[in-house]
Amino acid sequence: MKHHCEYSLFALVCLALPVFAQANPPQSGRDFQGKETRALEADEFANPGMLWVEQGAKLWREARGAAGKSCADCHGDAKQSMRGVAASYPKADANGIPPGRRVLSLDQRINACVESRQAARAFAWESRELLSLSAFISHQSKGLPIKVDITGSAAAAYARGKALYFQRIGQMNLACTHCHDQNWGKTLLAEPVSQGQPDGWPAYRLEWQTLGSLQRRLRACFFGVRAEQPAFGSDDLVALELYLAKRAEGLPIAAPGVRR
């Protein structure tokens, strides 16, 4: 009888939880931009993010570090070797670079290669080089659906990311879900609230007047709700990226996007 009561209570609590307006099917951040911003993203020539893609293509072929190797020396033509890669990140790295590391974001995976294979110094977060390579690699997955592995060693990161997504934070006491599940499509001042999808990242943001990573965008959200910002490359941000990628599954990669 006691057990029965507990189960009933559990069921009641479950029912009482608000039914979230799940982002299903997921909708690209592009759809929440104004007409001119969408047009800029669609314009393969004028999309400013393509400048970073072009620079990334150059860096891909440049030898670097004590090993004197370029990305292309190991990976060949990125058109084939990098096709679909960005759509599967963050990812628990099978090759163990660096050893013992769990889940890596694409930026971290690039830097792991730079350090271990090229024997060069890792690129700084948000540096032109790192953004160029990540934009170039992400662009090779354009049109391919996001699909991430959350099993095995990625399971813990996924759980952490999901918990963070629903965790109220900051002076505004808001969780990601409050804007991006419960209120997407509504407007905040003059701007429609998006679903917070990662498909267009790295993206050229008009507010920044430059290309930036998804982690920079996430940090801006932390700032927006007046919460302490996790550091670039922190386990929290990588976990959040993984949760967002899982949540976005099926959405085609559209990097580099353009956002207001």
Partner: peptide, 9 residues
């Protein structure tokens, strides 16, 4: 003629 230059302005 279309031109796009990477520069912070």
């Amino acid at each position: 003629v279309r031109l796009l230059i990477q520069h912070d302005m």
